[in-house]
Amino acid sequence: MAVNIEGSNEILIAYLTGELDHHCAGEIRKRIDSAVNEYKPSLLVLDFSDVSFMDSSGIGLVMGRYKLIHSLGGTLHVVNVSEQAHKVMCLAGLENLATISKSEV
């Protein structure tokens, strides 16, 4: 799992790649949080285009980032989510916290 982050103080985009599970969630969380705390963006985007698998560790990751960006007065968008990851996110009711959009395929 890898994350590439592009940012400004308006919009910060985290491009996630690989399988999002407990093994890698901690490292991804640290990288995103450090960028969020540096830029304090008004919009945080988690791009799931290249996430091939996600379990409930991903729910913790999205919920934790929601809390952080919300505490800074910003909003969270989760984009290009696969069917599998979408099913896991909906089970947790994440669509009530963040705007979630599925991948177009």
Partner: peptide, 15 residues
């Protein structure tokens, strides 16, 4: 802890 959603069994039951 705060980064665990507590949904592991809920996911297993649902899936």
């Amino acid at each position: 802890g705060s980064e665990r959603a507590g949904l592991g069994f809920a996911v297993m039951e649902s899936f």
